[in-house]
Nucleic acid binder design. Structure first.
Length: 479
DNA sequence: ATGTCC
């Protein structure tokens, strides 16, 4: 990757304009506190952000969320829009884990109902939901795989594995448009078949949480969140299937004469939005996203089933349901306001969360308050439920942060931290936990991440989202 | 993120 000289100008307390002196003079906007900006200013991520800003057909500004860090081509934490006629789509702008995302489940149970059974609950979940490299325990036919890729949660509903409420509480009904699931390679499908209803590894987790703090009473009530109640958060994606789709299409683009190569960084290879290549990648990406929505739905079902069995005597107090399920690694065609005009653009959100306020959610149950924005923290730290702010469209295409954001590389984490210290830290916080391997335990240590409270505060200060509720872990399962 | 090098 070629570097250029970076200029950083503070335009508001949580808004920074990054610019470069190269011939295109690209600019990008970063939302961050001063402290976060100081921690990232010498990082490759800002250079990567300017490279994205110089891609063809970019519409409006390229934005970075406060949890920005270095990624493949595009930094994680990027929101970038491209013209629907002149622009591009880039697999590096979605990421290898297509529809990596979050589902949040409310239980209606109080922490006191659950705490005595926490160890048993975590052990049982660990047995039932394969994590790390463990394979799927359920068997789906080739025919079902095709249907999952084609119809997402509608397949689950047909099979009695999801109900109408699950679909209403999943963004876009958990189904992105796919005409031909044949755009997904046989190898990708094969990998997916062995991984349905699995958590994976890396930063993926399943957490039993307590609603620790309510910042917005009215909105939290609408979302079904009450202080002292138990929630379960699932953070996972499309597993090997999405990874294989990303690999397949990066290979195709690299072999094609019709793709848009990038001289600054080969990882930014793209396809013109109106090209056949772009159309094929969009189909495959949507199919992988549908698989991920189903993956989280099946894990959700298993969690609810396990809660019912473990807390039999509390069954009448249980009021389970999906608060929301969303993707934070995805590209989509959306209508946004740029320079006062409404335009269709292809939005890449890579490690960034859609945060539509009510008026952008017409026709859904979230048309008054906006949809929940789920922000998983790092292991053993808080997670948040946020909501979009009217006026955030010109600021971030109505997007916000997606997590705490990595500070140390995986490699740096391993050389600095020990698994024993991290286990001790979790135990001292009174958290029940199970981890598939100690390597990811170290790589995902809270010390490897930014402070999620500061990330969320930066998103608030920048006018992107408002905090609704803060959740803290009481049980953790790591891949 | 990922059958962490087909």
């Amino acid at each position: 990757m070629l570097s250029m000289t970076l200029k950083i100008n503070r335009s508001e307390s949580y808004r920074w304009v990054i610019s470069s002196s190269d011939e295109n003079k690209p600019e990008a906007v970063v939302y961050a506190s001063e402290n976060i900006m100081n921690s990232i200013k010498n990082d490759q991520s800002l250079q990567q952000l300017l490279n994205v800003a110089s891609l063809p057909g970019v519409s409006g500004n390229v934005f970075a969320m406060p949890d920005i860090h270095q990624g493949y081509g595009f930094p994680i934490g990027t929101v970038a829009a491209f013209d629907y006629d002149e622009g591009i789509i880039s697999p590096g702008g979605v990421g290898y884990d297509i529809n990596c995302g979050v589902s949040l489940i409310r239980t209606g149970l109080k922490v006191e109902d659950v705490s005595r059974h926490l160890g048993e609950l975590v052990s049982l979940l660990y047995k039932r939901i394969p994590s790390g490299t463990a394979k799927s325990t359920i068997d789906v036919s080739d025919h079902d795989m095709e249907k999952i890729l084609n119809y997402g949660l509608e397949w689950a509903m047909d099979k009695g594995l999801a109900d109408q409420d699950d679909l209403l509480n999943t963004e876009l009904g958990g189904k992105l448009n796919v005409d031909d699931p044949g755009m997904v390679s046989d190898m990708a499908k094969r990998r997916g078949r062995n991984q349905l209803m699995t958590l994976g590894s890396g930063n993926h987790f399943l957490e039993i949480q307590k609603v620790d703090q309510i910042m917005d009473e009215e909105t939290s009530k609408v979302f079904g969140l009450e202080k002292g109640e138990v929630t379960v958060m699932i953070h996972t994606g499309s597993r090997g299937l999405g990874h294989q789709v990303a690999t397949d299409y990066l290979n195709l683009l690299n072999e094609s004469d019709e793709s848009v190569k990038n001289e600054k960084d080969p990882q930014l290879i793209s396809a013109h939005i109106k090209s056949r290549l772009a159309e094929r990648y969009m189909e495959a990406m949507n199919a992988a996203a549908n698989f991920a929505y189903v993956n989280r739905q099946l894990i959700t079902n298993s969690v609810i089933q396990t809660l019912r069995e473990t807390l039999k005597n509390r069954e009448s107090d249980m009021h389970t349901g999906i608060v929301y399920s969303l993707a934070h690694n995805i590209a989509r065609v959306e209508e946004h306001t740029i320079g006062g005009r409404k335009v269709n653009v292809i939005i890449h959100r890579k490690g960034a969360t859609r945060a539509f306020p009510g008026h952008m959610m017409e026709g859904t149950k979230f048309s008054k308050y906006g949809h929940p924005v789920l922000v998983p923290g790092s292991m053993g730290t808080a997670s948040y439920v946020l909501v979009g702010i009217k006026g955030n469209d010109e600021r971030s295409f109505s997007s916000s942060c997606h997590g705490a954001g990595r500070m140390l590389s995986r490699h740096a984490a391993i050389s600095k931290l020990s698994a024993r210290d991290i286990r001790n830290e979790l135990v001292s916080k009174g958290i029940s936990f199970k981890a598939a391997n100690s390597r990811s335990l170290v790589e995902e240590a809270p010390e490897s991440y930014k402070d999620v409270d500061e990330v969320v505060e930066s998103a608030r200060g920048a006018g992107l989202t408002l905090p609704v509720a803060r959740l803290i872990p009481i049980g953790v399962m790591k891949g």
